[in-house]
Design a protein around this nucleic acid. Structure first.
Lengths: 225, 225, 225, 225
DNA sequence: CGTTAATCGAGACGGTACGTCCTGTCTTCGG
DNA sequence: CCGAAGACAGGACGTACCGTCTCGATTAACG
């Protein structure tokens, strides 16, 4: 997530961890900065109404301590939002069925988008990334794609388990689920706030088509006869 | 779209035209400004990397000449984009089947969103929505909803014709089509630029589920036999 | 005195003054800035304890308004001090004799150097110019040399009038007067504060040598008689 | 010259040397720092263009190793220069005449002031005087006054020998010589670098007035006759 | 010979100022 | 009154130092 530095947090020779010389960077400062970003966003700050100097002041940190970690505001905000959005690591989707897993993921997404704070984060990022392809690209890589991958995994598992049609276009299915949820939660009218039933209906819509082949083959098994 | 002044740019009664005193504003300057905005965007400028001073310089115009017409950068950019977005009035969808009509609408949408300029238009207008609900609502009413209504009409016609399941959730189907298309065209990776086949696949996905009942009833009709 | 810009304040074609386009720079702002510099110095600020941001704030002026006129702090401070030290234009030295004129100039200098404010200005500049040749050179050109020229003029007049030896080294005489006065006023011990009698003694010391030839020729003039 | 810590670097009672515990400070590092200061100055660095970080880097030393020895840049630079300024102890002026002795002293002074490094020393120490009266007083007592006393001694001897007027103001004569030499060597334009002839002319100027009485009495001795 | 304690290079820390740039307004002139 | 031009106050940007601090690694003399 760091942008300024450096190479491989990857596995190094044996133990010892190859400590860099000099005083190590303060994790405390890092957290304070990230927290400050969110606290300021929650207080209604917009992306460009939010200045590095405000952040530094709020985090009680020198500006250099920020710039040592992120090269600019864009990288910082993306990283901050990404972090808030990223307890993905612990998201466990080992549900019993494709339907339940997808509903679970959609409900998670709905929770995020309808939440005061993370919802605003989305808006702010979308706003800022208009005509700012770099910001958007990174946002995409860091935030969007990892989430999408979760959907793909469930769908792939469904195909493998035989729960879904073998020729299902996983990408399109994933897009249909996520983008529809996004539209219905981020575009105010006319949908109004939706609930769990929307996630379920969305998945059921998908399954109705995606499981059809089996249905057909089941029933179609009779046809040749 | 003008924000600063004025009343109706529409046709005025009789002659005289309610001329204001003094030198009239130069249409030439206005065009030069709008052209400069697009030319700069096309040259890869980002939204906030694009400064009013750049625009004024590129248009060979004084800054005040811009601010006399639009109150700020946001208004200027939205207005500039709005120009490129207008000629939607004459969409006709009298297709032969639900599938063809939906594909036609999606292809129209894809053309807009994949266009360098009108695509950016959507993004900027989405930006405007953040913290400017009134503007967004108008944009929604004037641009988004009329488009959505076209989809609803086709779907309703499909239900009436018996081409689609009777209990189809038209709203959700419309959302699925439009939002997926939006996502796939506005979110660069990993989808890459899509073509007509995507529209067709999208509609086919929908139909597969939406027409299922008939399929089932067809096959189900056989079962007892 | 301006450093940032521009060409010829020299004589331009005919009248009309060749006004540059755009809004002219505010003389009011310029004065406010210069006044702020002195007011801050008088409040005990040192050269590098004095920041451009303090100056801008004190003058109620944007930083850019300062940087539009002077390229950096050095140029600004030199200019400011030079201006305070420069009511030289109205210094009139048309005294009756070389002695009286020189004493007048030395008293003026003593007044400056012993003055709370301008004395501090000297210190500050001397301090800042240590190892900062550029600062010092400009300070020299703008402040020191014009003052020295006044001494040279008096001495040249004295030579022309026959009051001083024809072969007097004017440069050295000027240096002797000014540097001794400088030393005795700026170097605290052991001299202690001096008064008018010091200026007079200094000039008399000079004259004793510089007028000697005449005295000798006068007395020698008698010999042939 | 050290400011941070400690007592007497002078010779301590008996043996034992009052060793402090722990690793002793590296003399090597100390020299490297001082050398770096001079090397950077010689490479054209200005006083405030010279940063502690540059020094540390040039000396291949940690910043703390500098700050452990000197509390700030001022102290470091003054100390560094002091090293180059010391070996004055053995000046001998047993010349044959007042003129030759004074010229010798002035030439010594000129050598110092025109030297790249010791010349800068004076400037920096003058800097230190501003806002640091105690330091300056010591500098004055230890460096300046001893030098001045040499001039006074020569002048007093001249008076005693009858070479100079009995009522010569020795203090003023000394000041005239030293301050003029200081001015002409430290103030670059327009004097330009001067040579031995300047020292001689300066002394001759002084003598012309200071020996006048004899000259007058010689010539004047004729008059009454 | 191992403990102890201050040193070392390195570099991060909270601050502060720098000089540049941009925003949206204001002020000049000529058309 | 509009046009270009550009100065205005304000404020954020990202850089560079300051003087302090915290690391792990040395380097003596003491025990």
């Amino acid at each position: 997530m760091k942008t300024t530095d450096e190479g491989p947090p990857g596995p190094l020779v044996s133990a010892a961890a190859a400590r860099r010389p000099g005083r190590p960077r303060s994790d405390q400062a890092e957290e304070a900065i990230l927290d400050a970003v969110f606290s300021l966003f929650s207080d209604g700050a917009t992306y460009d109404g939010l200045s590095m100097e405000m952040i530094a002041a709020a985090a009680k940190v020198g500006k250099a301590t920020i710039y040592r970690r992120w090269p600019n505001k864009e990288a910082l905000v993306i990283c901050a939002i990404g972090r808030r959005l990223h307890p993905e690591k612990e998201i466990r989707v080992q549900g019993v069925s494709v339907r339940e897993d997808l509903v679970y993921l959609l409900e998670l997404m709905r929770g995020h988008l309808q939440d005061q704070c993370t919802g605003a984060a989305y808006d702010v990022l979308n706003q800022a990334s208009v005509g700012n392809p770099n910001l958007y690209r990174r946002y995409f890589e860091v935030v969007i794609e990892p989430r999408r991958e979760l959907y793909r995994e469930v769908l792939r598992r469904g195909v493998a388990d035989g729960e879904l049609r073998e020729d299902l276009d996983i990408e399109r299915a994933m897009l249909m689920l996520t983008s529809t949820m996004h539209a219905v939660t981020r575009n105010s009218p006319p949908s109004g706030p939706v609930g769990r039933e929307f996630s379920e209906a969305l998945v059921d819509d998908l399954l109705r088509g995606a499981a059809e082949q089996q249905a057909l083959s089941r029933s179609g098994g009779l046809a040749p006869a």
